[in-house]
Simulated assay, not measured.
Amino acid sequence: PTLGPKLWEVPIIIGVNWFILAYLTGVAFQKIPNDYYAAFLGATAMTAIDYILEPVAVSLDFWYWKFDIIPVGNYLGWFFIAYLIHLIFRKAKFEKQNPIALPLLLTLILFFTILNFTVVE
């Protein structure tokens, strides 16, 4: 309930989060000429961000994990879904230049890193 309204038992804000992270990481690696390598880098970045975000999310009661252990499958799932999203991002025809994408991405990473030291028990 902490994350608000749900669609099919998934908080809507989770979809918004995925969209934002995929866009920011997609723009960050858009100059990489190889689509598969760029998708790999984007998926790796998104999974790393999830690694930073998970302890904060648990501490703030966004969700919980059985036995308070974040399963490896969570990160594998993040990676593979993010990889597919990044491949779609690469193939989509729209303007991918955005001067604030990288600073915003770095700000999000810094924000959740700081929260790891302040709210995680």
Rank of each mutant, 00 (worst) to 15 (best):
G77T: 04
G26P: 01
G42Q: 05
V120Q: 07
I32K: 03
A38H: 01
E9F: 13
F112T: 03
N17R: 04
N74F: 13
I49D: 00
W18E: 03
D35N: 12
F112E: 05
K91A: 15
Y23V: 05
T113C: 11
W18P: 04
A92F: 11
T25F: 14
L3E: 06
L60P: 00
Y83K: 00
T118Y: 10
K91T: 04
N74A: 12
I100V: 13
L21P: 01
T113P: 08
N17Y: 15
E9L: 10
Y36G: 01
W18I: 10
Y36V: 03
W65E: 09
K31C: 01
V16D: 02
F117D: 05
Y37H: 00
F40C: 04
N74C: 12
W63P: 14
V120K: 06
I100H: 02
Y64E: 08
N98Y: 04
I69V: 15
L102S: 00
I69M: 12
Y75N: 02
V72A: 12
V119Q: 07
L105C: 04
L60H: 03
P71A: 08
E54W: 06
V119A: 11
L104A: 15
L110A: 15
E54C: 04
F117H: 09
D61G: 11
I12Y: 02
Y64S: 12
D61W: 06
F62R: 03
M46P: 02
V27S: 03
V27M: 06
P11S: 11
I70R: 11
P71G: 07
K31V: 04
L3S: 07
L24T: 05
I32F: 07
I52P: 10
L108P: 00
G26C: 05
T44N: 01
L60E: 15
G26E: 04
L41M: 13
I52L: 15
V27Q: 04
L60N: 10
L106F: 08
W8G: 04
A22F: 13
F111Q: 03
L106E: 01
I85S: 09
E9C: 07
I32L: 11
G15M: 09
Y83H: 05
A22V: 10
G73Y: 03
I32D: 01
L84C: 13
V119L: 12
W78D: 06
V58P: 10
L24P: 02
L7P: 00
V58F: 09
P11M: 10
T25K: 01
F29D: 01
T25N: 11
M46Q: 09
A57N: 09
A48P: 02
D35S: 10
A22L: 09
I88C: 05
K31R: 11
V119D: 10
E54F: 05
N74T: 11
L76P: 01
P1R: 08
T47S: 11
Y51K: 04
L84S: 11
T2H: 14
E95F: 08
A22N: 07
L84F: 09
D35Y: 06
E9Q: 14
A38P: 03
T107S: 14
L87P: 12
